[in-house]
């Protein structure tokens, strides 16, 4: 903690860059793909995940051990970020990390919906956001989804969830609730963001994230052919689509693709778009979106080294790493061939 109370990007970015260079690269992933769950756990024990594997090793084994170790490590890394940062930087990081509050709330609601038991849900939480352990435990203890919504009423998610709960009661699907959470998160992310040049770049990054998410949602809806109005699930704040535009585009995939191609993301995404046009595979398009976002943040981190962007880039990269290891472990467990697992990975 600096006594001046100012922002300290030098310190945080230096640490973050050191951590980022320690993330797994191509070579490690290639090794991991050939390993079984037990070997992956051992490999992780020899790298950054040592503490978590040791702490959880006696209670869990196999893929569960990997999964919980990953979640715990993720939470630890992001708690570290908040511990290091001061002043305005802290504010920006905390804002971004509310993503995990959103994730946790979603997990709790999904757990209740599917009737999973409390411990299983608790192990899946990522305790990295603004909610402290005590509050999360109170959410976990809630007997029904209604009660969860009730307990969240004092937080930023309160108002959105209240409205969505009525929808949920009518339709009995979780989509309205989950979307309300996402929308609250993104609208708070951009709210009152002070603009200087570096924050302007950061804002563009967030807008890209929102645009990609909107595109993804629209494509998913188009793919399933479900009779849901895409405009209702539109996340505000992006620069590419407006709500009404998205509603018409979602019905026509070709138009949506050409719209993205003509936008400022066209160059970054052209490979992904070719893929989408030729194949029916939505998964590969989504992976390509992730890669494009990762590249974009990575490059921003070099343009403004003393701002939030290298940190945001680290957060995204770390999340991708955790997703990748999880995909490998789960894929190996299910006996998928190596090429198929490789397709699931998001590697820069």
């Amino acid at each position: 903690m600096s006594t001046a109370g100012g922002s300290n990007p030098e310190y945080v970015t230096a640490r973050v860059k050191a951590r980022k260079s320690a993330l797994y690269g191509d070579e490690e992933y290639r090794k991991l793909i050939r390993m079984g769950p037990a070997e992956i756990a051992r490999f992780m024990e020899e790298s950054d995940y040592e503490d978590e594997i040791n702490a959880l090793g006696s209670r869990h084994s196999g893929v569960d051990l990997i999964e919980y170790a990953l979640n715990r490590n993720l939470a630890k890394q992001f708690d570290d970020l908040l511990r290091w940062a001061d002043g305005r930087l802290y504010d920006l990081i905390a804002r971004y990390l509310r993503k995990f509050d959103a994730w946790n709330v979603k997990t709790v609601i999904r757990g209740l919906y599917s009737g999973a038991d409390r411990d299983a849900v608790s192990d899946d939480l990522i305790r990295a956001g603004e909610f402290d352990d005590e509050f999360l435990d109170r959410l976990l203890d809630a007997p029904s989804i209604e009660e969860v919504v009730e307990r969240l009423s004092g937080t930023i998610f309160g108002p959105g969830l209240d409205d969505a709960y009525a929808d949920y009661e009518d339709t009995d699907v979780l989509v309205p609730l989950e979307n309300a959470i996402d929308r609250t998160y993104y609208s708070h992310l951009l709210e009152g963001l002070v603009v200087d040049e570096a924050t302007q770049q950061y804002r563009e990054l967030l807008e890209a994230e929102i645009d990609f998410r909107n595109a993804r949602n629209a494509l998913r809806l188009a793919q399933t052919g479900a009779d849901i109005d895409p405009a209702e699930y539109f996340i505000k704040g992006g620069s590419l689509f407006s709500a009404s535009e998205l509603a018409t585009l979602a019905k026509n995939r070709d138009e949506l693709v050409s719209k993205i191609r003509e936008s400022k993301y066209g160059d970054d995404l052209s490979d992904a778009l070719d893929e989408l046009e030729s194949a029916e595979s939505l998964i590969r398009f989504e992976r390509a979106l992730d890669v494009a976002l990762l590249k974009y943040t990575d490059q921003l981190g070099h343009v403004f080294p003393l701002s939030i962007t290298p940190i945001a880039s680290y957060i995204l990269a770390k999340e991708r790493e955790v997703d990748n290891i999880r995909a490998i472990a789960r894929g190996r467990e299910a006996g998928l061939p190596e090429e198929q697992i490789e397709q699931e990975l998001v590697i820069l």
Binding site: E10, Y11, T13, A14, R15, K17, A18, R19, W84
Partner: peptide, 14 residues
């Protein structure tokens, strides 16, 4: 000031 802060961060990691 800035360099020292960054150096401390780097040393803490490595």
């Amino acid at each position: 000031r800035g360099i020292g802060a960054a150096a401390m961060g780097a040393i803490a990691e490595d």
